[in-house]
Every structure is written in structure tokens, then in C-alpha cells.
Design a protein around this nucleic acid. Structure first.
Lengths: 194, 194
DNA sequence: ACATTCGGTCAACGCATGTAGAGTGAAGAG
DNA sequence: CTCTTCACTCTACATGCGTTGACCGAATGT
């Protein structure tokens, strides 16, 4: 079945490392940190549990590496104020629509409420910088708070659609959701009060 | 220290049941289902772990009872379309600002991404009915989807403020957040397209 | 005054988990 | 051809968990 002809040691190592990371992303993303066991990840990757420890040291480290290829920050910092609502609405979708990235992003989001480290990463290294960039772009009164609310809304939609699998949101077209969410976000961006 | 004068058996039982439930709500709400142990709950309630099993049968049942006094559904079904944005913005806050309810609501929300039963309850028994009621109120094109997006936004703000403890949102005044979120929600409510 | 109910404790079981250390066999270096 | 390296496996340990059943002592009913 599997072609294993002419494989150097370095290649073989990278290959199993990737198999482990793929299985880890899938399971962390689907079950969360606690319900994912090293043993199950190893089984899905087709290797011994002890090898996971040898290659990644600890479950915590495996998780942080699996969740690392997570959320894309750049797409927001580059957007001008005029396009910010569109960019933000599209922002988190990209990480989840692409099957390649979906695993890492799920892993981080899935556990962000129950695993302290995941929550800290999401808060301090994803939402924090994003909010700062958005706040700088939109400016005006309460720019920081408005940026935070804006981000929280896209977070909520993402969670409801991809993780909670709300029937309505999960079944809807991405474009339809964007069409509804976008004007609401624009309201926040443009709300210079007084 | 503790006054234990003239306590009937029935009273004593209700008292310890409540102590257990209070401790359970606190820990489930703060740590999530998996990281909360029967032993720790019993310790906080000042009784033996076995008594928890005897009174509640199973950890799952204790959780569902602790999370039961959860989210308030009525406040939305009664609102007219005109006040819906205000009502929705205030909706989830009430469950979390009140120290009495906060525990149960946290318990449910904290574990909704990692504990299947919690996710199912939130999806099918909280968000589902709420969205149906909101959709019926706002009417128009895509009313179901618009209601779902609206709910997802308040969900996101609640999660970011109370569970993730985003520094900006957690530190802000409830009224300020409402003032920013409300117009955005109204945009969703009023977006009769074409 | 006795028997009973019942809130509560104690000690223990079985299990799954993360992790450690010794060992193996083939790929690579000299 | 030989020695070393290293990806990989096997076995096992320690721990914490949910859960169980036997037991105790005080409040209750008769």
C-alpha cells in the first residue's frame, strides 16, 4: 500500500513528524486538548506512543506546535479603513475554509476556553495584536473598544459555524454570511460618535 | 464557626446539595468539564467525594444540573422587533453580571466546545430556540440566517469578555459595550435587502 | 426505649493517561 | 566490512480519575 522505496533517514523522520502533527491537529481540533490522548494520536499516525514523546517532548509542546500554524494575522493589518469590514468578515473564514490550515486553527480555538495556554495564546498573540492593528486603522473615539467588539463578533460567528456547528450557520454559504455580517461590522468601524 | 443548631435531616441534605452545586458551578465554570474533578468539588464543599456520587449519581449528571440554571431565554422572545437589538445586546450580559446565575452560564459556555453534551445543549436548547424566536420577530429575507449571525455576535462578545477575559472587553463598562454593539445588531435586524 | 432510616465517611477497585528507560534493527559513515 | 547513529518499539511506572460497597452515628418514627 504505502510506497516506502528509497527513503533517507532525514526524510523518514520528517515524514513521521508530519504524520504525527497532522493527526494531532485533527484530534486537538475535533476533541480539544484534554480529550485528545498521545496514544490515540500515535495510533492515527501509525506509530508508537513513546515516539511522540521522543520527538515532541511533551503533550503541551505537541499541542503548541500543532496549533502554531494557526491564525493568519497579516490579512487584517494591511487593510485600509475602507476595506476593513470586508477584510474582517473574510478574515477567520480563510483559516477554516482551507483544509490545510483548518486543523491548526481549530486546535487553538477548540481549546481556548478550557486550556489555559491556548486561551493565553489566543488572547495575547492573536486577538491582542489584531485588535491593536484594527484600532490603529479605524481610529476615532473608543477605537480600542470598537476593535475589540468587532473582533469578538467575527470570533463568535467562527465559533458558532465551525466549532459549535450551529445548523443554520454551518449550512449557510460563506458569501451569505459575509453579506449579513459585513454591514454590521461596518457600523462598528464607522461609528464616530459625537 | 458554622452555626449548626437545630437542623433537620431534610434541611441538612438540601444544604449540602446546594453546597455541592455551588462548588460545581464555580469549578465547571472556571475550569471546564474535564479539568474539574469530583474530588475537588467535594473538597470545596467540605464533604467526601463519595457523597457527591451518592447524591448526583454521576459526574455528567452533576454537570448538567450545575449548568441547568443557565441561560435566560424569555427575555428575547418577548421583545418586539424595534427593541430587539437592545434586548439582544443586554441578553447574555444579564446571565453573567448577576453573581447568582454567572456560575451556571459559565459552566455551560466554558465547556461547550470540548464537551459534546454541553455543546449539544447550547446548540439545540439555547441558541436554537433563541434564533427561532428572533427570526420570527425580525422577519424578512434570510431571517433565520440573520438571527443566527446576530446571536453568534453576542455569543462572541460574551465569550471574549467573560471567559477569554480579553483585556479590553473585560475592563470595559457594560454600557459602553452595549452602546457599540447595539447599532451593529440593529443593522442586522433592519437589513431587509432588495 | 427500640428499631430504622439516612446523611455522611473510609478504603479500595479498575482504568486511562503522560511519561521514562532499556532495547532493536536497519541506514549511514569510516 | 565494521562501527556508530538514530528512528522506532516494548514494557513499565506513577498518578489521578470516576465510581463502588461496606460501614458509622445521629436524627427520626413508633
Amino acid at each position: 500500500m504505502t510506497e516506502d522505496e528509497s527513503i533517507s533517514r532525514a526524510d523518514r523522520r520528517r515524514r513521521t513528524e508530519n504524520a504525527i502533527l497532522a493527526a494531532a491537529r485533527r484530534q486537538f481540533g475535533e476533541l480539544g486538548y484534554e480529550r485528545t490522548s498521545i496514544r490515540a494520536v500515535a495510533a492515527e499516525a501509525g506509530i508508537d506512543p513513546a515516539l511522540v514523546m521522543q520527538l515532541f517532548g511533551t503533550k503541551e509542546r505537541l499541542f503548541s506546535l500543532a496549533a502554531a500554524s494557526g491564525v493568519d494575522l497579516e490579512s487584517l493589518t494591511g487593510a485600509a479603513a475602507a476595506d476593513l469590514a470586508e477584510a474582517a468578515a473574510a478574515h477567520l473564514f480563510t483559516d477554516f475554509e482551507d483544509p490545510e490550515r483548518r486543523g491548526g486553527a481549530s486546535a487553538l480555538l477548540r481549546s481556548c476556553l478550557t486550556h489555559p495556554a491556548a486561551g493565553a495564546v489566543l488572547r495575547d498573540q492573536v486577538m491582542g495584536p489584531t485588535q491593536a492593528a484594527v484600532a490603529a486603522t479605524i481610529g476615532g473615539n473608543d477605537s480600542e473598544l470598537r476593535a475589540a467588539v468587532l473582533n469578538a463578533c467575527t470570533l463568535g460567528v467562527t465559533i458558532a459555524r465551525y466549532l459549535l456547528q450551529d445548523p443554520v450557520l454551518a449550512g449557510a454559504d460563506r458569501a451569505d454570511i459575509e453579506r449579513i455580517l459585513q454591514p454590521a461590522l461596518r457600523t462598528i468601524v464607522d461609528s464616530e460618535q459625537r
